[in-house]
Amino acid sequence: MAGWKTAWRSFYYDGAPEAPDPVLVKGKVALLVIDVQNTYLARPQDRASLPPLEQAREAAWDGFHDRMHGTVIPTIARLMERFRAGAGPVLFARIACLTPDGGDRSLSQKKPGWNNLFLPHDSDASQIVPQLAPQPGEVVVTKTTDSALTGTNLRLLLGNMGITHVVCTGIFTDQCVSSTVRSLADESFDVIVVEDGCAAGTMDLHLRELEIINRIYCEVMRADDLLGYLPV
C-alpha cells in the first residue's frame, strides 16, 4: 500500500518524506464523480464516412475511450458500491447550462474550440452516463465552469454534511478534476484523487497533471489503495 506515498512526485516534492496514511472517518468522507457525462463518451457510428482530418482527430481519442470503458468507469462503479454500502455519500458534478441560449456559461466554456460547450441541463448529452447513474437522494450539482465548487453550493453542502475528506474521480484530469481539487484544497478539505478513476485526453496529460497537483493540493492513489483506508 505504501507505493502511492512516493509516486507521482513533482520536482517540488522530490525526496520529501512519505505522505501520511489518511484517516478516513465513516460519514466524513465523500466520493465526488466529476463530469462523466454522455457527451464525452459519444462517438460517431460510421467513422469511415468522416473527412480524413476528422477521422484522424477521432482516432486520436481512441486511447481515452479505451481507458474510460476499460478502467475509469469500472473503477468509479466499484468505489460507488463501497461508498453506498456505508463509507460515505456519493455526489456528482456535471457541466450543463441553465438558460436556453447558454448565456450562463463561464467564459472558458464560450471560447472557440474543443472546450466550447453548449449542454442544456435537460438534454441527454449532459446526463451522467448510465453505468454511473445517481441513485435517488444523491446530490448532483450543475456547474457552468470547470470547478465543481465555483458557482454551485457544493462547498456549503459538504460543510453541512460534515465532510472533511473528498475523494475525486472523473474527467478531465487536467481540467475540471484539477480545478475542483484546487478549489477543495483552498477551502481546507482533504482531497484524494483516484488515479485509475480519472482520465485526460491523453495519458501524458493525465500523468503530468497528477504530478502537478499531488501532495500540495491532494494525495494521489489508486482505488485498491483507497479501499484499504475506507471505513467499513
Rank of each mutant, 00 (worst) to 15 (best):
M1W: 12
M1G: 15
G3Q: 14
A7R: 12
W8K: 11
R9D: 10
S10A: 08
A16N: 08
E18P: 11
V25A: 12
K26R: 15
K26P: 00
K28T: 07
V29M: 09
A30P: 08
D35H: 09
V36W: 01
N38L: 05
N38Y: 05
Y40Q: 11
R43D: 01
Q45F: 05
R47S: 00
R47D: 01
E54D: 12
A56G: 03
E58W: 01
A59Y: 00
A59W: 00
A60T: 04
F64Y: 14
M68K: 10
M68A: 15
G70C: 02
P74K: 02
I76A: 04
M80S: 12
M80E: 13
A85C: 06
G86D: 10
A87Q: 08
L91A: 08
R94W: 06
I95H: 11
C97P: 00
T99I: 02
T99R: 14
G103Y: 03
D104S: 06
D104L: 05
R105Q: 09
R105I: 01
L107Q: 15
Q109L: 15
G113W: 10
W114M: 14
L117V: 10
L119D: 02
P120W: 00
S123A: 13
P130V: 01
Q131L: 07
L132Y: 08
Q135R: 14
G137D: 05
V140K: 08
V141P: 04
K143L: 04
K143V: 03
S147W: 01
A148V: 01
L149S: 02
T150A: 14
G151S: 08
L157C: 07
L158P: 03
L158D: 04
I163G: 03
H165P: 00
H165G: 02
H165T: 15
V167F: 04
V167T: 03
C168K: 03
C176V: 03
V177Q: 05
V177D: 07
V177W: 02
V177E: 07
R182V: 13
A185M: 03
D186S: 10
F189S: 06
F189H: 05
V191F: 01
C198S: 10
A199Y: 04
G201I: 10
D204P: 00
L205A: 15
H206W: 09
E209C: 13
E209P: 00
L210C: 11
I212H: 12
I212Q: 11
I212C: 07
I213W: 04
A223V: 07
A223S: 15
G228Y: 02
G228I: 03
G228L: 05
P231Y: 06
P231E: 07
V232C: 08
